[in-house]
Design a binder for these strands. Structure first.
Length: 924
RNA sequence: GCGCAUGUGGCGUAAUUGGUAGCCGCGCCAGACUUAGGAUCUGGUGCCUCACGGCGUGGGGGUUCGAGUCCCUCCAUGCGCACCA
């Protein structure tokens, strides 16, 4: 019987669906295992061959775990809110919900054809009100919480209010934007609006005026990680900085815990590194420089700076403020007012992109004012310069040009003093930034190494009262509002310009219908178009919506109890499934989703809603599958195309050609002529009658004509073959270009495997006991495959199957004793063919309910070992000895060989090294 | 510039973790069988050499009886971040 993968796969996919084979429920008698894929955004283009890579790997692993006796949760859903559907809606007027539903349907069809073992009864869609009800619910929790630095955790806002009533905010240590302090009495005397305004500064979800990334083309703000090189990640439109009233989440409060938590989870180093970098912890000191009281300066007070090198305090020769710094106006002397104003307007008009493009361009302006050096009491000039960022530290730096390259460049450019305070470099040439070297010109720090000087300097600074040691983080709060339609409404309304949340019982706040998906004429977000959309018909709702990452920051919890309408997930489900054991997804989410999901988990944990404070124990980043684009070369100005090998003889323009009409780089000329009417009359300059295309590896995309869809591969080779081939392509974590050429190897393997079960076209298995050799082949494979799956080394597992089948072919093995366990072994990789054969073998139950075989060590023991004998590093001959020999016996054998060496070389060996079980080395 | 990752046949890759480098697959060469296929099977295939033999894991150096694997250094490629004081 032929291996007819199409009908086999169809049959079993229907069987699984009908029998709900992959439905899971809580089972306290078995250990749980949670395998999660990053859910996809259902784009209009459908899946290409690169998308399922991670899903295949996770599917193999969850099938394996299931067959190892675990109760495996393996769900799937859709990240359904997002920009493309909305952009499409703007263009066509089609409601994003409709587009999204259509795309989901297409995705589902494609996913189903791959034979995944998802429990679809747990499907989630972030755009479903039954889902985003709970996203909004979590927002309420964030709004009604604050971060207590004393307990280092999230606490309900009621506790803070109680404390305000008792002591004001005098004793409170919170992560907040509040600077003013008030007593209990003052608090009680505030009116409602004033109290709410104070509280807002403590909430984890808060409204504030902040500098945001504004993208005028998209008409919305973007989070830091949605901006790349000053352009929007989606669309590539310019982004500018703008001060706006915005909802933000206080993720910065969790910086330290997010950093510490990395130590407890098994994620790749690369990923941990980028999160560490994004959090950007730096330890140093906060210093106050007193503003010199000269006649020209009216302002009094201090300029606060953050530095990681307090040891270089004696090398400070000027202070630089960011142009946006609060004190700029008040300290500038009248003499410099005009120039400073000019400089500020210049730097404001310089877009973020320009600023990034020419980082090397040094600009700045002296203010006319001075600070007093805390130790030397000398006057130090205050400059402004846009190399200082307003958003980091205090927006002011103590410039140590001798030991910081940016300060150095600034000082050189403006002719400012450069003082050496750490020896070891040559500061006439460049700044010496290294910490190796001892301090000089530094009074009480002289002679100390930099590390010791840092400690000593801080000690002295604290003692004299003009500073303190301080830890700074790069991580900023996450802007949470988006001026878009297609997102979760923020469940907030305004009364007296003060935000209030709606009640839990009033959730979900459903996205209203609007006539057009564009901002209003007055520039309000699209939601402002909604008619009569007011809380209790009286108070305006918040017009912005949540960002794309809101729904994905907790979806793993919803899968645990996806249908629950009373809570986001029951305590029973949460306590059983707890957290994700294996999370698979792309590394592009390192500083976005993967940080936010950890953040939300910590908040929910602190508030007692979830039992763990890290979402995923282990994470694997699957590589991207790129496309291999094919090019043809048009002779410029003609309708002639020249083959790749001859193109250098002509003046040509390369043109993408659809990879589906090219095989092994040979263009199908007829198909090409039919491809587009403009090519119908093309002429070709060929090599040996063939037109050879050029290649380039690029991102797989429609516009590059290099998209290979899984559907066409499945039609030709079957889903099992595609699954195995994608795994065979190489290590799961590596990115690699798609290449259909090698797939025949896997296809042949499956056909051969199938053929093992058939004699003269009839399904037939021999009941004769297996030979030792056959058993050895089987058990070797069981061991290798088991070890490999546990190491996520799926490419080598596939190789092992091939070797095993080749060996069994050679042995003409058709024995049930061998083939039955082998079928189980293959089931996670190629579930359809395994089910079919399993069924033919007379089993009634699905193969997924079977237990994965365990290897028997007895069959793996080698009875002989070839000891390669190397003489002075060169292999000369092999000693073949039974493994049963003792060490002494081996030595005796080797001594005999040494005699032979003597005969060979004319001298006795000096040294004989025996590595048991390995190798014999003889040194002459 | 900083951080991370990766360099092995014509190609994708493998190597019991310091022990015979190149498993498995693609491709290629030769052959068998034909009901002529995108079928199946057999043998070969790192490089140089007619051969003996030599050379080989990005380059150079080191540790070791022994290095693709460990250390130093340089080079190349990819990804991430980018004035973070």
């Amino acid at each position: 019987m032929e291996y007819n993968f199409n009908s086999i796969e169809q049959h079993w996919q229907q069987y699984w669906k009908k029998n709900e084979t992959y439905k899971v429920s809580i089972d306290l008698t078995r250990p749980k295992y949670y395998v999660l894929d990053m859910f996809p955004y259902p784009s209009g283009a459908g899946l290409h061959v690169g998308h399922p890579l991670g899903y295949i790997a996770s599917d193999i692993f969850s099938r394996f775990k299931k067959m190892k006796g675990f109760n495996v949760l393996h769900p799937m859903g859709y990240d359904a809110f997002g920009l493309p559907a909305e952009q499409y809606a703007i263009q066509t007027g089609q409601h994003p919900a409709i587009t999204t539903a259509k795309n989901i349907e297409r995705y589902r069809e494609q996913l189903d054809r791959m034979g995944f073992s998802f429990d679809w009864s747990r499907e989630v869609r972030t755009s479903d009100p039954e889902y985003y009800k709970w996203t909004q619910w979590i927002f309420l929790k964030l709004f009604h919480s604050w971060f207590n630095n004393k307990s280092n955790k999230t606490e309900p806002i009621e506790l803070l209010v109680a404390e305000f009533n008792k002591n004001g905010n005098l004793e409170v240590a919170a992560a907040c934007s509040e600077t003013e302090s008030f007593s209990a009495l003052e608090w009680k005397n505030f009116n409602e609006v004033e109290q709410q305004a104070r509280l807002l500064k403590y909430r984890l979800a808060y409204l504030s005026d902040s500098m945001v990334n504004w993208c005028p083309t998209l008409g919305t703000v973007l989070a830091n990680e949605e901006v790349k090189d000053g352009l929007s990640e989606r669309g590539g439109y310019p982004v500018e900085k703008k001060l706006m009233s915005q909802w933000s989440l206080r993720i910065s409060a969790f910086a330290e815990r997010l950093l510490q938590g990395l130590e407890t989870i098994d994620w790749s180093d690369a990923l941990k590194e980028s999160q560490k970098y994004w959090i950007g912890k730096s330890e140093g000191a906060l210093l106050n420089f007193e503003i010199a009281n000269t006649s020209a300066v009216q302002s009094q007070g201090n300029i606060e700076v953050f530095t990681t090198r307090p040891d270089t305090i004696f090398g400070v020769t000027f202070i630089t403020l960011a142009p946006e710094h609060d004190l700029v106006n008040s300290i500038t002397t009248s003499e410099y007012t005009k120039k400073v104003e000019e400089y500020i307007s210049y730097s404001k008009n310089r877009s973020e992109r320009e600023r990034m493009a020419d980082v090397k361009k040094i600009t700045g302006q002296f203010t006319g004012a001075y600070v007093i050096h805390p130790f030397t009491k000398k006057n130090i000039p205050i400059w402004i310069g846009d190399y200082v960022l307003a958003g980091y530290g205090t927006g002011a730096v103590m410039a140590v040009p001798g030991h910081d390259s940016r300060d150095y460049a600034f000082a050189k450019h403006f002719g400012l003093d450069i003082t050496e305070v750490v020896s070891g470099g040559d500061i006439s040439k460049e700044a010496y930034e290294s910490k190796s070297g001892v301090l000089v010109n530094s009074d009480f720090l002289d002679g100390l190494t930099a590390d010791k000087a840092i400690k000593k300097a801080i000690e002295e600074i604290v003692k004299q009262g003009f500073g303190e040691s301080k830890v700074n983080y790069r991580l900023r709060d996450a802007i949470f509002g988006r001026q878009r339609y297609w997102g979760e409404p923020i469940p907030v309304y305004y009364k007296n310009n003060t935000p209030y949340t709606i009640l839990e019982s009033e959730l979900p706040l459903v996205l209203p219908e609007i006539d057009k998906f564009l901002p209003t004429e007055s520039g309000e977000p699209p939601l402002a178009r909604a008619k009569d959309w007011q809380y209790k018909g009286e108070y305006d709702y918040e017009p912005t919506t949540m960002p794309g990452w809101a729904g994905s920051s907790w979806y793993y919890l919803r899968y645990m109890d996806a249908k629950n309408s009373n809570v986001f997930a029951s305590a029973e489900a949460l306590n059983y499934w707890r957290d994700v054991d294996l999370y698979l997804g792309g590394s592009e989410h390192a500083t976005g989703h993967l940080l936010y999901v950890r953040f939300w988990t910590k908040v929910l944990f602190d508030l007692g809603y979830v039992p763990v404070d890290e979402p995923a124990k282990k994470l694997i980043n699957q590589g991207m599958i790129q496309g291999t684009s094919c090019f043809i070369y048009r002779v410029t100005g003609t309708n002639k195309f020249v083959s790749n090998g001859l193109k250098n003889n002509y003046d040509t323009t390369p043109l993408h050609v659809d990879v589906n009409i090219v095989s092994n780089n040979v263009l199908d000329i007829d198909a090409f002529k039919n491809w587009r009417s403009e090519f119908a009359n093309s002429e070709f300059i060929t090599e040996d009658g063939k037109y050879i295309c050029g290649n380039e590896v690029e991102k797989m995309s429609k516009s590059k004509w290099n998209v290979v869809s899984p559907d066409s591969i499945i039609e030709q080779y079957g889903a099992d073959c595609l699954r195995m081939y994608e795994m065979f392509l190489g290590p799961i974590e590596q990115s690699k270009p798609w290449n259909t050429n090698g797939i025949s190897g896997v296809s042949n393997f499956l056909k051969r495997f199938w053929r093992l079960f058939f004699v003269n076209g009839e399904f037939q298995l021999s009941q004769v006991p297996a030979s030792k050799q056959e058993l050895k082949s089987l058990h070797k494979t069981i061991k290798k495959v088991t070890d490999d799956i546990e190491k996520f080394s799926f490419n080598t597992s596939v190789s092992s199957f091939m070797i095993c089948v080749n060996e069994l072919m050679d042995l003409k093995c058709n024995k049930r004793e061998i083939l039955e366990p082998l079928t189980i072994l293959i089931a996670p990789f190629a579930p359809h063919i395994a089910e079919e054969l399993w069924n033919l073998m007379g089993h009634q139950e699905s193969i997924t309910k079977t237990i994965f075989p365990i290897h028997d060590k007895n069959y793996l023991v080698e009875d002989e070992f070839e000891y390669p004998v190397s003489v002075n590093g060169k292999t000369r001959f092999k000693l073949i000895l039974p493994l049963s020999l003792t060490k002494d016996q081996i030595e005796a054998e080797v001594t005999q060989s040494a005699e032979f060496i003597k005969h060979l070389n004319g001298s006795s060996p000096k040294k004989i090294i025996i590595v048991p079980g390995r190798i014999v080395n003889i040194v002459i």
